[in-house]
Design a protein around this nucleic acid. Sequence first.
DNA 1: ATATTTGTGAAAATGAAATAACAGATAATG
DNA 2: CATTATCTGTTATTTCATTTTCACAAATAT
Lengths: 290, 290
Amino acid sequence: MTDAPLTISDRIQRQLDDLTRAERQLAHSILENYPASGLGPLSALAKDAQVSVPTVARMVQKLGFNGYPEFQTELREELKAKAKDPIAKHDTWAGGAPSGHILNRFTDAVIDNIRHTLGQIDPQDFDTACAMAANTKRHLFIVGGRVTHTLAEYLFLHMQVIRPRITHIQSTSNTWPHYLLDVKPGDVFIIFDMRRYENNTLKLAEMAHAKGAKLVLFTDQWRSPVHQLAQISFSSRIVVPSAWDSAATPLLLLETMVAAVQDLTWGDTKDRMEALEDMFDQTKLFRKFT
Amino acid sequence: MTDAPLTISDRIQRQLDDLTRAERQLAHSILENYPASGLGPLSALAKDAQVSVPTVARMVQKLGFNGYPEFQTELREELKAKAKDPIAKHDTWAGGAPSGHILNRFTDAVIDNIRHTLGQIDPQDFDTACAMAANTKRHLFIVGGRVTHTLAEYLFLHMQVIRPRITHIQSTSNTWPHYLLDVKPGDVFIIFDMRRYENNTLKLAEMAHAKGAKLVLFTDQWRSPVHQLAQISFSSRIVVPSAWDSAATPLLLLETMVAAVQDLTWGDTKDRMEALEDMFDQTKLFRKFT
DNA sequence: ATATTTGTGAAAATGAAATAACAGATAATG
DNA sequence: CATTATCTGTTATTTCATTTTCACAAATAT
């Protein structure tokens, strides 16, 4: 439990009293913008701290390292660990389960994926994509492949409530060429393609593109070949401790898109939702929510 | 507003298309734990990315640097700047987006949901459910409703590879009573039911239960009425800043279950997966993954 | 079949780190 | 105040690791 990794920062502060004047000066300089300054060349660090080169070398040894490179390596690993460790990562863990339990390993991976993916998304692109999906002047096509059609359908189910003029196409079906007949320039395609990328999806994308449609792509970190045709691409990290990939991150993105599109079209959406409620009530498909 | 000094991370992503395969591989490795890996020696980075040393050197130049050291220097300065910048608090956030951007609000909510949900799951229940799902002696039925059938189908798609004797039923279809004819005592039902809970699903569950089947339920925090019949229930938090609910947490759970079941049946799964690969190759449905 | 990309291996060049010796500075002590 | 011990910077030298570059073969894509 006590993995207390004892950072270099800790070690320096602990030894602060055993250090001489120049060394203390150096120590403070290191802590000043930690750990960046320690990752540069020794001489730069010395200059930064207004201290001589040998002083740095001497102190590094005093701290118990075999040399400056070793000191740097440890700093670097510290940084790496820090980046990985989302604050209190282990709050997430299922109660009482061993840390190695698949529930915890899997969840950690997914949260990591989410963090990583979000960090790479350009909000402006996202807003643009949402605006495209909200534009009822254009027909909206949603495309998925063998596995991803479940994501596509999930998006379709929600968008259906939000706006009219929308079609769900499954690229593995042999009926999709028919749909393309009606595509007009400016129509919007939202395409899902994760590894292993499907030829059909690429073909479909090419034809849609040739017809002047705009493409928005949800793909994985390695990016489907479709991305070269797409106006906007969102790449999700999908690797988890499993033989399969995780759809959790792309799902998060598309759910966010649904929420954003709804905000953009709230006036209409409201009416449509109420109308839908009525229809469901009439068909008695659902119980009243208590 | 646009102090955006254009980080190296940005630059790499922007040029991602101009890079070759090995270079892209390297690029991803750099972004993987950024910026730590870029601060080590060139050779270490190459090894990490499973790429040759010259490839690294070549790409660094392609990115516009005069050499690896220059690249490192800029990385270091970036790090230094980030440490000073108060914004750096929320790593998760989409870069540059205002903290109130829907991407960030939504993501925070989902991570919160995951944390909360995981904290309430009993790992033993989970293991039991996985064992039930892995038991090929029993027929496995997967049931979803109007919206949740996408989750059900996602589970079905994967379980199909893992084990035989499995059926996907959509409770909103009028064909489901037929499936129930074949249910034997001890068969297993995995049922998805989120608000608004569907009458059909409840009826189906009742009949399956009456026939002596075991029920595993994925539901939301308010719990579908099916949970009274279910041997094991998993409740996910699903509330997000949207007019709809999020399926991210239940998806995470079922993906974890897939991973766990696969572990339990690895011997068989392996064969089945290979057989499936062959079939896909023959149908040329997919491109070879590069 | 051709062109591009990538890895291998090795040599060369660079630059940084480690070390040593010494002198000047500083602090400590009597 | 004088003296000693310690610390620190300068300079120079050696050593080492890393980067850079090259040529060629293998792999890969077009």
